[in-house]
């Protein structure tokens, strides 16, 4: 069997494994959410600050909340299998449509951030490790520590204060200028302008994590036997780092990058909230407090799928980075 055949078979197999995992997650999520006190009707009535019992009973009947839990669970799983994620009664929209309108902005923010954070993390980690215990290492380590320890919302607000309120360079929030009617390149630039602060705030945090990981990984590799061999062979330090150490040291960073994809949905709740970015994190957060279970389950399902897919992609990237890893 050729390598590419093997690879295809591997992907198919892993994708199949993913199905029971996702189904399990759906069921566990559903049952977990049932443990919460109060339902969507309580939340709606709470916002309205008044409601009659007839009205609340009417709503429960309409939302199907008057059915026993196993009936609700069975109906939900059946619908999910048919790719129907149900209806968000709160937003009065199908869950899938709702998620789709929010997925774009989240992906845009996430991929940009992850790209910047990984690239910067690798570069800074490399610089720190190669200049171990010099001023360069110290500065980078302090920078990483500070950005890692600073709360995201605080960084966000400080950026707003500096760039929007004091300097007036960037808009405080939103994804684009409302009612400006930009199209094409103009619109892309407008969105980019709105993206600057959320991306900086979010990538600072992840960059810090990647920097520290990269630095540690580089140092670990530097003590390996193959490095000693390379040195004995008479290679320059530069050749050793670029040709041998870097490739091995990047592996944990890539793993971490994959894991962070799911984490970033959470991290972006804060950033989306501070910068009014119309993404999924904020939607999930609001859905939780509104007990909009269909929507919440839909977002969880998407997150689960993303993790499964990300893991698969990472495994594949591994095989390129380290040919010794076999496709099984």
């Amino acid at each position: 069997m050729t390598k590419s055949h093997k690879r295809l078979l591997f992907i198919a197999k892993r994708a199949l494994y993913g199905i029971p995992v996702i189904l399990g997650i759906v069921i566990v999520n559903f049952l977990l959410l049932q443990l919460m006190e109060g339902d969507a009707v309580d939340a709606l009535a709470g916002e309205a600050a008044s409601a009659t019992p007839e009205y609340m009973a009417q709503l429960r009947e309409r939302f199907g909340l008057d059915q026993p839990i196993y009936v609700q669970l069975f109906a939900y799983v059946r619908n999910v299998v048919m790719l129907d994620l149900g209806y968000s009664f709160r937003h009065d929209m199908p869950v899938l449509d709702l998620i789709m309108t929010r997925l774009g902005p989240t992906m845009l923010l996430m991929t940009t951030t992850l790209f910047i954070a990984i690239v910067m993390g690798i570069v800074l980690g490399l610089l720190a490790a190669t200049g171990l215990n010099t001023w360069r290492d110290t500065i980078i380590s302090i920078l990483a520590l500070v950005s890692y320890a600073t709360p995201l919302f605080w960084v966000g607000l400080m950026l707003v204060l500096l760039f929007s309120v004091r300097l007036g360079w960037l808009p405080t929030s939103g994804m684009e200028t409302i009612g400006a009617g930009y199209t094409g390149l103009e619109r892309a630039l407008d969105i980019a302008r709105h993206m600057v602060m959320p991306v900086i705030a979010l990538s600072l945090f992840y960059m810090a994590a990647f920097t520290r990981l990269m630095r540690a990984s580089m140092l670990e590799q530097a003590n390996m036997d193959y490095v000693t061999t390379a040195r004995a062979k008479g290679l320059t330090e530069r050749r050793i780092v670029w040709g041998h150490v870097l490739r091995n040291a990047v592996l944990p960073v890539v793993t971490m990058g994959g894991v962070q994809i799911a984490n970033m949905l959470g991290g972006s709740v804060i950033i989306e909230s501070v910068f009014g970015w119309p993404g999924l994190g904020l939607l999930a957060f609001e859905a939780l407090f509104a007990r909009d279970l269909n929507l919440l389950l839909g977002i969880f399902l998407l997150a689960a799928c993303m993790v499964v897919v990300a893991n698969l992609v990472i495994d594949i990237i591994y095989t390129f980075l380290d040919p010794r890893i076999e496709l099984k």
Binding site: F153, G156, L157, V160, L161, S164, V165, G168, P171, T172, S173, G174, I178, S273, V274, F275, G276, L282, E286
Partner: peptide
């Protein structure tokens, strides 16, 4: 009608005139 969920950002948006 704009929706801004963070209270600090709402203050900033009023201050900048957005």
């Amino acid at each position: 009608a704009r929706f801004i969920s963070d209270t600090g950002t709402r203050t900033a948006a009023m201050e900048t005139g957005e």
